[in-house]
């Protein structure tokens, strides 16, 4: 792989701090606040409906430094979920009927106990999703993962912003596209994305810039046609995800003088239907250190669960958090713009 961009953390950039990110977002002028938009949609205060997805962020370590990363992940990051936190997550899952576990990072596969986590969660009969940057599958110590995923029927959600090299490498780093195509070929070879295999390979595309994703169904047809025609690659679904004004994407928005325009674009595209179905309403996000959040984005802004609610996985109490009030901010417009955006793509078809 080509040159790795330095993380904000490595550059000691102000926006490496969550507090600085919040302070950068707060003064951006907007015609209406997110709370006002929710009120207009009769959704204020926004509350959770249940916990159907338990999202575990295993840490910030990654072999890539994508320009839009809301985690500021990279090879220099040392935050990795300690064993006792992982064990507590497993204990909580074993004692609950939460059906889906979404494993993310960084590159979650870099966690030393990643495979054990997958095995144990799969043995509980829960659905397991791995958010995979694809290139990790080419590293020598991780080349066994396609077979491992297949054995445990892990749903693989691979990141690929575009079906061409230039746009992909601009966002994810030089050389990433070719390696991603090789990784997808290996996943196809063990049955992922192949009709009738039961092995689900979904792709995620984030816009390569300060614009919203288009019609997911239409883009999926385009991606399927082009990836099969150009590289013989098959996959199941394409998820379009809006870039969040957090961390490295926030830094890029500021640097390119796009911040105010992008925030206004998100607000203009506010969709009450998308707000109704935002993922924080049925998700709980666990940070690498065990802290609890409404979503991975609040996690990166260090906006913990609301007052009086458990702060950590060690205080987990399903009844207290099942219908909790969700902590909101202007970044939430990223999930409610247009057809909406969640870890599973659009919210409103």
């Amino acid at each position: 792989m080509g040159r790795i961009l330095p993380t904000l953390h490595k550059r000691r950039a102000p926006l490496a701090s969550a507090a600085d990110q919040r302070a950068t977002l707060a003064p951006v002028p907007l015609r209406r606040s997110f709370a006002e938009c929710l009120r207009g949609a009769d959704l204020f205060p926004l509350t959770a409906t249940d916990i159907e997805i338990f999202q575990i962020n295993l840490g910030k370590k990654c072999n890539q430094t994508c320009r839009h990363c809301h985690v500021d992940a990279g090879p220099d990051r040392t935050e990795v979920m300690p064993r006792e936190v992982l064990d507590e997550c497993l204990a909580v899952l074993a004692n609950s009927d939460i059906p889906r576990v979404d494993i993310t990072g960084g590159a979650p596969e870099l966690h030393p106990d990643f495979c054990e986590l997958v095995e144990q969660v799969a043995a509980m009969g829960k659905d397991v999703m791995d958010r995979c940057n694809l290139t990790i599958l080419l590293l020598p110590n991780y080349a066994h993962l396609p077979e491992f995923f297949a054995k445990h029927k892990v749903e693989v959600i691979g990141s690929l912003p575009y079906y061409r090299e230039k746009q992909t490498d601009v966002q994810r780093g030089a050389g990433v596209f070719k390696e991603s195509i090789e990784a997808l070929t290996r996943l196809n070879a063990v049955g992922y994305g192949m009709p009738g295999s039961g092995l689900v390979l979904n792709l995620v595309t984030n816009p390569v810039g300060a614009f919203l994703p288009g019609n997911q169904a239409s883009l999926e047809l385009q991606w399927k046609r082009e990836l099969e025609r150009r590289y013989g690659i098959l996959f199941n679904n394409l998820f379009t995800i809006t870039n969040m004004p957090i961390s490295r994407f926030l830094d890029w928005l500021q640097e390119t003088n796009n911040l105010e325009g992008y925030m206004a674009r998100l607000l203009d595209a506010f969709n009450p239907g998308a707000a109704q179905g935002v993922m924080c309403r049925n998700t709980l996000s666990v940070g690498w250190d065990g802290r609890l959040y409404d979503c991975d984005f609040n996690q990166m802004l260090e906006l913990g669960l609301g007052p009086g609610l458990p702060e950590s996985i060690f205080d987990f109490d399903l009844e207290k958090i099942r219908n909790r009030k969700i902590v909101i901010g202007s970044h939430c417009f990223g999930c409610t713009a247009g057809a909406g955006s969640s870890c599973g793509g659009v919210i409103v078809a």
């Binding site: 816009p207 288009g214 239409s218 991606w223």
Partner: peptide, 10 residues
Amino acid sequence: SEACLENGAD
């Protein structure tokens, strides 16, 4: 220009 990018044109 923005609509083209949003709709997957490069």
